[in-house]
């Protein structure tokens, strides 16, 4: 194969077919993709269909704990999983800058295949476009995904069952992904040992849903972090959210970097964490289940749903004061996912 991606790789001609055969089909390998049709044709299943899409422009493409490929597959799987769906099929679209090294593309594709396999999801459709040098930054990836939701879990995405007294749980440390990516940027003055938390969560979430009814809401706190995810939950609702700062798990390194550069870990994106709102009667059981899974070892109850403060998220600070948390405004960290 060529060493660098050229315009011809996106032309629809021979080079493009070579790339598809030697790279995408080789790694993604499954009968739906290999049938070579314009659309993947998959068998029907009982339940509701969940469908989602997301584009990834993370910079740098490779970072400790992951890369744009792992991120793109995990991100779409997680959007399905937190909606209560079992993820099934994913499509992958690549926008590649002319001159991008083929071996880097191969690393990304290999990582996507590995992540999909780990999560039990198949990549069944794809697309490749190449743009002139300087018209995009190396590589952008889009993934869409389809999953199946059983009837009893359709309320999770809408949050309609959330009520006062429910407990708010986070499945692990907050802010690792954002800070790990940021600290890899060219020119960033501090070196850290931080790793991104980026990972598919469908196994973890599946275990929770299998064992417990009364999970009322889930969300992966990606862009805008935990603060924004909770604000979105509370907005326009007849309940409030109270979270307690000392209960929120934040790594020392993330805290230190945040202090140094003026970030608030509550707004820093995670890519392998889930916020769960569940009935008080099952919250300890869920916590126990999370603690027994490698992706949930550091899970904690961080707050609760309140009768007062409709539509608002209130933080009880470590000093004992209480302040209102707002959605992220502007960009705290550009191109982190």
């Amino acid at each position: 194969m060529d060493e660098l991606i050229m315009m011809a790789h996106g032309s629809g001609g021979k080079k493009m077919h070579e790339l598809i055969r030697n790279l995408f089909v080789k790694y993604f390998r499954n009968p739906f993709l290999e049938s070579g049709g314009d659309a993947a044709v998959v068998p029907p299943e009982p339940g509701h269909i969940a469908f989602t899409t997301d584009s990834y422009v993370v910079d740098p493409l490779f970072f400790p704990g992951g890369d744009i490929g792992k991120l793109a597959v995990s991100g779409t799987i997680n959007d399905l999983a937190v909606s209560g769906a079992a993820p099934r099929y994913i499509s992958a679209g690549f926008i590649i800058e002319e001159g991008f090294p083929v071996k880097d593309l191969e690393s990304v594709v290999r990582s996507m295949a590995g992540t999909a396999k780990q999560a039990g999801v198949q990549i069944v459709a794809g697309d490749t476009k190449v743009v002139n040098k300087g018209k995009c930054d190396r590589l952008f990836v889009n993934t869409s995904g389809v999953g199946i939701i059983s009837e009893k879990h359709t309320h999770i995405a809408t949050a309609d069952h959330v009520k006062a007294g429910d407990q708010v749980i986070i499945s692990g440390y907050v802010g690792d992904h954002g800070m790990a990516v940021l600290s890899q940027r060219e020119g960033f003055p501090v070196k850290t040992g931080l790793k991104s938390d980026c990972t598919p969560l469908n196994d973890l979430i599946g275990k929770v849903l299998e064992r417990f009814d009364h999970v009322h809401f889930m969300r992966d706190p990606t862009r805008g972090g935990v603060a924004t995810a909770l604000c979105e939950l509370a907005e326009g609702r007849q309940f409030g959210v109270l979270i307690k700062e000392p209960a929120i798990p934040v790594r020392e390194e993330v805290m230190g970097l945040s202090e140094m550069f003026g970030f608030d870990p509550l707004y820093v994106p995670c890519e392998g964490r889930v916020l769960i709102v569940a009935d008080q009667s099952v919250s300890q059981g869920i916590l126990h289940t999370l603690h027994g899974h490698p992706d949930g070892e550091n899970a904690a109850v961080i707050g609760e749903i309140t009768t007062g403060n409709w539509g608002k998220v209130v933080l009880e600070t470590i000093a004992g004061g209480r302040r209102i948390i707002h959605m992220l405004t502007g960009e705290q960290l550009p191109r982190i996912c």
């Binding site: 003026g262 608030d264 600070t317 470590i318 000093a319 004992g320 004061g321 209480r322 302040r323």
Partner: peptide, 11 residues
Amino acid sequence: MSIHRFDIPSL
């Protein structure tokens, strides 16, 4: 920032 962030006035 600290005064607001920790809601010192309420104390």
